[in-house]
Nucleic acid binder design. Sequence first.
DNA 1: TTACAACGTCTATTATATTAAACGTATGTG
DNA 2: CACATACGTTTAATATAATAGACGTTGTAA
Lengths: 183, 183
Amino acid sequence: MDFDLGARLRAVREMHALSQRELAKRAGVTNGTISLIEQNRVSPSLSSLKKVLDGIPMSLADFFALPATPRQKIFFGHHELLEIGGGGAISYRQVGRDLAGRALQILHEHYAPGADTGKAMLRHDAEEGGVIIVGQLEVTVGDQRRVLGPGEAYYFDSRVPHRFRNVGPEPCEVVSACTPPSF
Amino acid sequence: MDFDLGARLRAVREMHALSQRELAKRAGVTNGTISLIEQNRVSPSLSSLKKVLDGIPMSLADFFALPATPRQKIFFGHHELLEIGGGGAISYRQVGRDLAGRALQILHEHYAPGADTGKAMLRHDAEEGGVIIVGQLEVTVGDQRRVLGPGEAYYFDSRVPHRFRNVGPEPCEVVSACTPPSF
DNA sequence: TTACAACGTCTATTATATTAAACGTATGTG
DNA sequence: CACATACGTTTAATATAATAGACGTTGTAA
């Protein structure tokens, strides 16, 4: 196997905001199966892989047609945030446990319903990231797109064309920042 | 499984004029494995399927992107030709073992290097087929295209738009015909 | 703090895919 | 005819994938 099947499945699953257990339930397999596949500790039978993709849902053709290597890690789940100022009246949560090689830290933002950075994609020589507090924010980065909800986050190279939209009915509260770190 | 994986693999294998054993050898699996897969008696692991496709060679993406149902059997491998006038000074080999439901038999043609039936695809109310003797002939039928070499063959409904091109540097010798059978 | 729920991971058992070797058939040759 | 070769298929033994259930961690709330 010369391509990373596990990482590919994991990426697809996370793009759809599904946990291993949720997906397993939809697919009619066990969560352990999905865990093992994502770690490349087994080579799934096609019937299993088909069931799993049906649970997403995604066709086998689309699955294998995905670009081989997502250019960088962009999306983060709940526990990939590091609590820094925890517990006080003010607390910061850092996007990404490891800042090595990163050029920024994260602060705040607020999106009214329907707010949009515009169809003309943004590009600038920087890096940026953020975390959604309340509401639904659609984040588009290059050829990747995802609607993020409370507790979810993003991080990417700003030179890749990008765009933000509040696609929900309520205001969207976000913490975000640009390089370089302000403190 | 709602699609016929076995038939799909068999079609691909036969398109490339490979026997189960030949393909098995190239792929590093046993011929039995391929037989069982083609009969849908097992659901192959992805590692196996990958190995098999590497032996063709064909990517997983291409494999799953194939149309679900080839509209009709179009390409034939070596041993799907039936020897009719065998052994004499003249001998005919019939394309397709079984003429039932077929409207023709096959004769000759010759393509100079670069010869082309033209970008405007051919269509006519007939059936046609042929076999390549020398050289390389690119045959396009509907959304299917293949470069055929010596010993390989084609058969299709001429109402489907089609085109022939000699893509090789040498003359291409072909046996071909149109409906109805001449003898 | 405690308890609870959800997450991904791991392990022993069960189910299944893969192998190696045989089988039956068809074709070609002396 | 006997013999050899190639084909796809099948079967018993082996290797591997899938399951069920337990484990440790993290985040949330009482």
